[in-house]
Amino acid sequence: MAKIVVHVMPKPEILDPQGKAVGAALPRLGFTGIAEVRQGKRFELTVDGEVTDEILDNARKAAETLLSNPVIEDVISVKVAREGGCGCGGHGHHHGGERKDLLA
């Protein structure tokens, strides 16, 4: 089972009330040094079998039509998660290729 990961973020010029609230909560909990928080969405689309070009193309269209609203959001990326990539549900032992840059 392969997975397509779609990232959606509020447009930079759109105020993000949820991100703002999270940003305000951080220093209260002692997490200092963070200037701003913006909150987006991550969708994991699980595919039966391989991710063909057609399926990936469909996922891109879905990202632009249903998963995001172009008036307020940008689709940041539509990527195939690598085989054996993070299907773990997030237990803190990330081994997916696409996450390495974020952890570095």
Binding site: P10, I14, L15, P17, Q18, N69, V71, I72
Partner: peptide, 11 residues
């Protein structure tokens, strides 16, 4: 109709 609605500014 154009535009969109997001969460209230004060949440």
């Amino acid at each position: 109709l154009p535009g969109s609605m997001i969460k209230n500014e004060h949440l």
